[in-house]
Amino acid sequence: MLAFILKRLLQSVVVMLTVALIAFALFRYVGDPINNMVGQDTTLEERAELKERLGLNDPFIIQFYRFVRDASVGEFGLSYQHRRPVKELIAERLPATLELALVSAILALAIGIPMGVYTALKRYGFLSRTFMTISLVGVSLPTFLIGILLILFFGVILRWLPTFGRGDVVEIGWWTSGFLTASGLKSLIMPSITLALFQMTLIMRLVRAEMLEVLRADFIKFARARGLPTRAVHFRHALKNTLVPVITITGLQLGSIIAFAIITESVFQWPGMGLLFIQAIGEVDIPVMAAYLVLIAFFFVVINMVVDILYFVVDPRLRVDKALVNGQ
């Protein structure tokens, strides 16, 4: 198991270095960093001197090394647009995105998984069919459209909920939280539903498909033939075997939630990283783009690692010990 984790860790490092390379290439070669730092009236000599001072004339590998070294402590330089350190910008925005993602993830999993299990067990029930139909509509509704519709009904027509921003936040150290104020919680409702809805329907459908697959297995039939009650067959035998694929799905969906936060934040003007990123793309603010890229990659790598380790916990076949597989 240790060897497996080390192997995965190594792979993760390779992935991170690849992403860092892309981010670095973006930073260094797309657009001219000097141009973005100095005014129009700077002379050529001054530019050359600045270039030398910043080490931009050094060999590629040394520059890349410096980039990785700085990135690993969160240092990505100054934002072209905001003229502030990227580190600060991200630190400001991070809590907003993580709080939104957390609430949405809990919402999506807590509703999606039970619904998936239910629709698989009661395949032909009326409620199941209704859920399935609704879920198809849910998969067909783009996230931004869900947001717009929510804004139209609850913001514009009914005027119940705020349509943009986080409301009042409370500062806890460098973290800012919207969980502790009424307006913060109210502001969270629509964005988190928007973000969760699409993922929820997806999770539900995937869990249902996996569960149906397991229910067809021979060992389920054998368990029934031994007289085990339906509850035990469904929950002790079928559900646990569904868990492995569900973990994968959950991992992937957590990643998706962070990515789809870009859209939600853009619809609701939610002051998170996604909004920062989409604005950076519009303004060609390369340091911000590079930082976001590396950070997101880091999140994904961590999620994947956790998923892989969970596999080991759940599935004994992966903990295979060759010596125990005896012959006759």
Binding site: K221, G227, N241, V314, P316
Partner: peptide, 19 residues
């Protein structure tokens, strides 16, 4: 089932819960 009548199926590789 199980108490009065026991059943044995064809494929031993898939008849047992792997987990």
């Amino acid at each position: 089932r199980g108490k009065e009548i026991g059943m044995i199926f064809q494929d031993p590789l898939t008849s047992l819960n792997p987990l």
